[in-house]
């Protein structure tokens, strides 16, 4: 079954068209990476799927159901998004508890206290953080809260927009391990935007390379690891990565 299917997706903001004919199929349970040039429209694709970029032509289907152009309540239980910036994605005046129970409140789900505690445990947040404010947490802890918030409604699909790029390597490792474990335990589907190819190798099984609003290549991660990507731009990215990697003894 396909979890997310995009066909000939053209997304625009005002008069500027950002993506051109994006076509992708992501199987349920897969972990799919979207990599590519900065400004090429990766985040925009995620936003269109989520309903935050309502101006598009083409088809978006999630779990076989066509998407409407806006945000709808039913969809929010199917698919959630984690944003890039752990500093900007939490409400500065709300405790972690309020942030996490808000989705339950919106959907009228009871037993909030227990669910909040369970989800916090699932993302490895200690109970003592529950009534803290975001400014009392570190970047990595905030990103865990953001992931927990996305998980509150028990969606099957997570859209991850550079979930670790603002974090340092040791925290990045923790978050990556967490995402890997959650997928294993809960059978989630990931569509993740990143510019970090090593992260793709660690977490994903397929990837698409974007440039200038178009998908230039879709490949298996095995190809990435073996360095056998075909498209010239993908090869350029890969080469830049290789040249960059540190020789550690």
């Amino acid at each position: 079954m396909t979890a997310i299917s995009l066909k000939n997706l053209d997304i625009s903001y005002g008069h500027t068209q950002i993506t051109h004919g994006v076509t992708l199929d992501i199987a349920a349970g897969a972990s799919f990476a979207l990599v590519g040039e900065s400004g090429s429209g990766k985040s925009t694709v995620l936003k269109a799927i989520a309903g935050l970029a309502p101006q598009w032509k083409g088809d978006i289907a999630v779990n076989g159901k066509p998407r409407s152009h806006g945000i709808d309540r039913g969809f929010s239980k199917m698919c959630q998004m984690v944003f890039q910036d752990p500093y900007g994605s939490l409400h500065p005046r709300k405790t972690i508890d309020t942030t996490l129970s808000e989705p339950l409140d919106i959907h009228g789900i009871g037993n909030q206290g227990k669910r909040v505690e369970e989800t916090m445990a699932a993302v490895g947040l200690d109970r003592r953080f529950r009534f803290r404010f975001p400014h009392q947490l570190s970047g990595g802890q905030r990103q865990r809260v953001a992931i927990a918030r996305a998980l509150m409604l028990e969606p099957r699909i997570l859209l991850l927009d550079e979930p670790t790029s603002a974090l340092d390597v040791s925290v990045q490792a923790e978050i990556l391990n967490l995402l890997k474990r959650l997928r294993r335990e809960q059978g989630l589907t990931y569509l993740m935007v990143t510019h970090n190819l090593p992260v793709v190798s660690f977490l994903c099984d397929r990837l698409a390379v974007m440039r200038g609003g178009r998908i230039v290549e879709v490949a298996d991660v095995a190809q990435l690891k073996a360095g056998t990507l075909v498209d010239p731009y993908s090869r350029e990215l890969l080469a830049a990565n290789k040249g960059h990697a540190l020789e550690s003894a």
């Binding site: 990045q172 090593p198 190798s201």
Partner: peptide
């Protein structure tokens, strides 16, 4: 520790050391 926590492009580890 910081160096080890970084994933690599030919990553085969199941879990990254923290």
């Amino acid at each position: 520790g910081l160096l080890a926590a970084m994933p690599r492009i030919d990553e085969n580890r199941d879990e990254l050391p923290v």
